[in-house]
Computed example of a mutant assay.
Amino acid sequence: MGNAWARRAALLVCVVGLAACDALPRSGPNKSEIYAGSVQKEGDAFVVAVSDNVTRATAVVPALGFTSDFTSAGVVGSDTIRPGDVLGVSIWENVEEGILTTAGAPASLEEVQVDGSGFIFIPYAGRIKAAGNTPEAIRRIITEKLADQTPDPQVAVRRLAGDGATVSLTGAVGGQGVYPIERPTRTLGAMLARAGGVAVPAEVAVVKIIRGEKRGQVWYQDLFEYPELDIALRNGDRILVEEDTRAFTALGATGTQTRVKFQTQTLSAIEAIAQVGGLNPALADPTGVFVFRNEPADIANAVLGRTDLIGAQRLIYVLDLTEPNGMFMARDFVIRDGDTVYVTEAPYVQWTKVLSALTSTVGAADSLATTAATAGLF
């Protein structure tokens, strides 16, 4: 009788365990529970199977680029002198004892900085307007002013590196700082090269420019693929290089559950799954790959074939990788910033957990019955 009681107790425990199988640990909702929350079943999210039409309607990527204010600007003339520039001036005289030097030996003024008002000072020539002129124009002015005091003076003027026209570079560049706009660095790409290039992967580097009240940004790689985006720089431009901040969240039966940054400009569902280690072969249901997203009304209407939706809508996109074209759909479906990629567990996983729990429970019951019998309790 004691053994019969023990078996009945063990059976009771098994029944209780089976009834409580929904409380077993799992990574998230199953397919049935997700579908139960759809609008079609009085839920608050639209569940949509991914198709070619859905893929086309949702293929939205960040639109980066420059307005015509940036692309139509000409390069800064490297010979135009500005306040803050530094000039090198050399003067020769054709007399044995000149006012500045002797015959054959130049009087060199290695660094003459243009002051805030745009003037420079040359001995015996006085204050000369330099800003707005070219080195050649300044040479002629100095020559004319000295000609009244020394016969046939020979003058050479060259522009040295100065801070008359500069840009600032910050963020993920090799060398942050303030750089002068010179002949080799009059465009964005050349200036970034002067600063040591970008310090983040080129595929996800974003270059932003602030010019007064105007702003623009482009992908770093596009500077090389689209030459028109390699814009001319202007004095005072502020250049910021940042790594792309877009990310998606991976949950469920994947290789890892975490928030993942984009590693390329565009990211497909199949690439997103690969980025987190693929589907967990021991847990994942390849027919239940879901992408949760808040869609703008225009895209939601296009996806659902409607025109009446207003405001952001909750959409759940379903990918079935076991279908003949399932992998192609996953390859073409674009993941966007803020998406949640969720992979459900295969149905048998819960049964495995139930059986494991029941086996453990029955084992515990047998052990309890054995102990009770040994103690003479029944």
Rank of each mutant, 00 (worst) to 15 (best):
I231F: 01
G177Q: 09
A73E: 13
A9E: 15
E97V: 12
G88P: 00
P347V: 08
R127G: 07
T374I: 14
L192F: 10
Q40H: 01
G175N: 13
A365F: 14
P106T: 00
P180N: 04
V60C: 01
Q275I: 08
N94P: 04
T359K: 07
F292W: 01
A147V: 10
A364I: 12
E93D: 07
G174I: 11
R127T: 13
V54T: 14
A302N: 04
I335G: 00
R26G: 13
A282M: 05
G288F: 00
G43Q: 01
E228M: 04
G17F: 14
T245A: 11
G376N: 14
S68T: 11
L87M: 06
A199F: 05
A103R: 13
D163W: 11
R139T: 11
V173H: 03
A147Q: 10
D332H: 05
F248S: 05
E228S: 04
S356G: 15
A330R: 08
D230S: 02
V318P: 06
V60R: 04
G326F: 05
G162R: 06
A10L: 07
T374P: 06
F292C: 02
V341A: 06
L358M: 05
A156D: 14
S51C: 04
L169S: 09
V291F: 03
G28D: 07
V114L: 03
P123R: 05
G311M: 00
D69W: 10
S72K: 07
D237Q: 08
R159H: 06
I122Y: 02
A172W: 03
I141R: 11
P324D: 11
R159D: 01
A6D: 14
P227Y: 09
R215L: 15
A4T: 02
G175H: 13
W5L: 15
T340L: 14
G177P: 11
R7G: 13
D298C: 03
E345I: 09
D298Q: 00
G104W: 06
G164W: 12
I91T: 03
C21M: 14
W5Q: 12
V95R: 11
V206W: 10
A161K: 11
P106M: 04
W219R: 07
G104L: 07
A312P: 04
G174V: 12
I81K: 02
A199C: 09
Q221A: 13
R183Y: 07
N3V: 14
V157M: 10
E182V: 08
A131I: 09
I210E: 13
T143I: 09
A369V: 01
Q176W: 03
E136Q: 12
K214T: 15
S51H: 01
N280Y: 01
F290Y: 15
N301H: 01
A73T: 13
A130N: 08
D79C: 02
A137Y: 00
D366E: 15
G236V: 10
V61G: 09
G17H: 05
